[in-house]
Simulated scan of single mutants.
Amino acid sequence: MPASKNPAIEDYLKTVYAHTEWQPDPITPKALADKLGVAPSSVTEMVKKMAAQGLIAHVPYGPLRLTDEGRLRALAVVRRHRLIETWLVREMGYQWDEVHDEAEVLEHALSDRLLEAIDLRLGRPARDPHGDPIPAADGTIATEPFLRLDGAPAGHTGRVLRISDRDPDVLRSLAAAGVAPGVGIEITTVDAAGERVLVTVTPIDADDSTGATAEASSIELAAEAAAEIWVTG
């Protein structure tokens, strides 16, 4: 089976890519094992296999980095995952906190033809329901300056760029508070202990014809929730 269609290799590639998508530190074999929930020895063997296929560059005991080929294959998996999540929300009635596990399964089974049909039907979406950019079929991906909300200074203004889908409970609580990708946000106060962040959120009005925005509201976020939010830099 080609590496690009091997579910185990796809999972490794996607996990290595995702680790550095929103922060700069490369992933270590131990961190990769923890994220995948496998034994370090399993990572060692798989990394050797992937290195032999030209997908990963690795120095013993050092961090893991994708080769150009590995990155292209990782982005192909990421594209499938994020398009599936978008399709499930827009077409199948799923909520944004329900789609991750479904996409984890379907991303390995979808044919390129069906994926293209889904992409076309959805109007070539640029981002998934959580705000993560969807790579194009050629492997290009749009990026823009960002910072994590818990590291943004008081007075910083921008818009919510993406919210991690790691914790469904956090997604539900943020949705209830009106925090979602695309809304305007201003960091009003960061407490001295760094445990709470007070923000002002300005939703985009549903009536696009007026160009108006809905009324802003102040929301207090725990540091754990703020750490799941990325905003424009």
Results as ranks from 00 to 15, higher is better:
residue 224 E to N: 06
residue 73 R to V: 12
residue 101 D to Q: 15
residue 10 E to C: 13
residue 221 L to E: 00
residue 51 A to P: 02
residue 40 P to L: 06
residue 174 L to Y: 05
residue 229 I to Y: 00
residue 100 H to R: 10
residue 191 D to K: 10
residue 209 S to D: 11
residue 38 V to C: 07
residue 95 Q to Y: 07
residue 214 A to G: 15
residue 88 L to M: 09
residue 127 R to Q: 04
residue 85 E to F: 03
residue 111 S to K: 05
residue 42 S to F: 03
residue 190 V to I: 11
residue 112 D to F: 03
residue 20 T to W: 03
residue 28 T to W: 10
residue 103 A to D: 01
residue 228 E to V: 13
residue 129 P to S: 10
residue 170 V to N: 06
residue 63 P to N: 10
residue 43 V to E: 08
residue 99 V to I: 14
residue 62 G to P: 04
residue 210 T to C: 05
residue 151 G to V: 04
residue 23 Q to N: 07
residue 78 V to C: 02
residue 24 P to S: 14
residue 94 Y to A: 15
residue 108 H to K: 12
residue 15 T to S: 15
residue 156 H to S: 13
residue 75 L to I: 04
residue 205 D to W: 00
residue 89 V to T: 11
residue 130 H to Y: 08
residue 173 S to M: 09
residue 204 I to H: 07
residue 154 A to W: 00
residue 60 P to A: 04
residue 16 V to Q: 10
residue 101 D to N: 14
residue 84 I to A: 05
residue 226 A to N: 07
residue 189 T to F: 07
residue 90 R to H: 11
residue 199 V to G: 00
residue 124 R to M: 11
residue 126 A to H: 02
residue 207 D to N: 15
residue 73 R to C: 08
residue 46 M to F: 06
residue 64 L to D: 05
residue 155 G to S: 11
residue 148 R to G: 05
residue 109 A to C: 05
residue 169 D to N: 09
residue 86 T to M: 14
residue 17 Y to S: 13
residue 18 A to H: 04
residue 203 P to G: 03
residue 200 T to I: 04
residue 47 V to N: 05
residue 84 I to G: 02
residue 232 T to W: 00
residue 171 L to Q: 13
residue 63 P to E: 05
residue 53 Q to W: 03
residue 105 V to M: 07
residue 108 H to V: 07
residue 162 R to I: 01
residue 138 D to M: 12
residue 190 V to K: 13
residue 81 H to P: 08
residue 94 Y to R: 14
residue 38 V to Q: 09
residue 89 V to E: 13
residue 225 A to T: 13
residue 177 A to W: 00
residue 21 E to D: 10
residue 24 P to A: 14
residue 16 V to P: 11
residue 77 V to L: 07
residue 209 S to Q: 02
residue 59 V to P: 03
residue 145 P to L: 14
residue 69 E to W: 08
residue 166 R to N: 10
